[in-house]
Amino acid sequence: MAHSEHTPQAGGLKNPAVKRVLVVTAILSGLTIVEFILAFYYPANMSRNVLFAILTIFKAFYIVAEFMHLKHEVKSLIWSIVIPLAFIFWFIVAMLTEGGAHP
């Protein structure tokens, strides 16, 4: 407990790291609110689903890059995580095709 002030930098709004966290929080909340508006005031069709997908991927990017700090890791670690995710897109396309094949 006696060592609680090791560095001069303190918490609170003056800390740039904390400021960054709050900016990302605002972005995530803003994107979620846009999703709600779309859910109620936009006709339910494929173009809305695409908009939802784009907004979701944006949110995912901010969570992984900033909250999970992946953006600030070394390049080899970033690619080790991101490249295998390509399989998910393959899976999505394959299963959507299969799902549509059975009316």
Binding site: M1, H3, S4, E5, H6, T7, Q9, A10, G11, N15, A17, V18, V21, T25, L28, S29, T32, F36, I63, E66, F67
Partner: peptide, 27 residues
């Protein structure tokens, strides 16, 4: 929607905990 914001906010407090850990601020 309330549930979503609760989870986002608890993620935010987690980032702040990690940030405080970098400064060795136990409290």
């Amino acid at each position: 929607g309330i549930m979503t914001f609760i989870l986002i906010l608890s993620s935010v407090t987690m980032v702040l905990a990690v940030e405080a850990g970098h400064r060795m601020s136990q409290k």
